[in-house]
Simulated scan of single mutants.
Amino acid sequence: MNLALWIVAGLLAAVMLFGGAAKVLVPREKLAAAPGGGWTGDASTGFVKTLGAVEVLAAAGVLLPAAAGVAPVMVPVTAVCWVLLMAGAMVTHLRRGEGAAVVANLVYLAMAAFVAWGRFGPESFTG
């Protein structure tokens, strides 16, 4: 179980890092033209860049606290925050009729929920 949680957390961190870096580094207009990125055309550049920065920080928060042994409770807290972010992303994509993006968000939400459940419960770093 512990290994599965590390693997899922690592995959989530990769998704968070790449998605966040794209939002920070790629111009909003280019993001808006990408599949599933149409919502960025309706958002301000500042919002998109801030969201990207939050995602990059989440990538660190879902792995580094446990790896460093400093405040490992931040791993499941970050996972819960990612669940909330993905719920919001799903609403946004549903409103825009972007079904494929909703499915991807649902998968990421489920992965984060698994990490949160596992790290708050049976494979807690504090127990």
Rank of each mutant, 00 (worst) to 15 (best):
P27N: 12
A116R: 00
G61R: 03
A110N: 06
A53V: 15
P27T: 14
R96G: 06
E55F: 00
V115W: 00
K23M: 10
A32S: 06
A32C: 04
L106P: 08
P76F: 02
V83W: 04
A14V: 15
A53I: 15
V62S: 03
A32T: 03
C81V: 11
G36E: 07
A100K: 12
A34W: 01
K49T: 05
I7M: 15
A116M: 01
T126L: 14
M111T: 05
V24K: 08
V54N: 05
M74Y: 08
V83Q: 07
P65E: 04
V80M: 07
A87V: 06
F125P: 06
A9M: 13
A110G: 04
V103P: 00
W6K: 04
A60Y: 14
T78R: 03
L31Y: 05
G121Y: 02
A66K: 08
V75Q: 00
G69N: 02
P65Y: 09
V102S: 03
V107R: 11
V75P: 00
N105M: 10
G10M: 07
V77F: 05
A53W: 11
V115M: 01
M1L: 05
W6S: 07
A13T: 12
A58S: 13
A101V: 07
P72E: 09
V103C: 00
V91Y: 01
M74F: 09
G36N: 13
A101W: 00
P72D: 06
M1Q: 01
F125M: 07
L3A: 11
T78C: 12
A101N: 02
L57I: 07
A43T: 01
L106W: 06
A68R: 10
L64V: 12
E123Y: 07
E98N: 13
K23S: 01
V56S: 01
L17T: 05
F114S: 05
F120I: 05
G37T: 12
P35Q: 02
V73Q: 08
M16K: 00
A22W: 14
F120G: 09
V73H: 12
A67I: 08
L109I: 04
A110V: 15
G99Q: 04
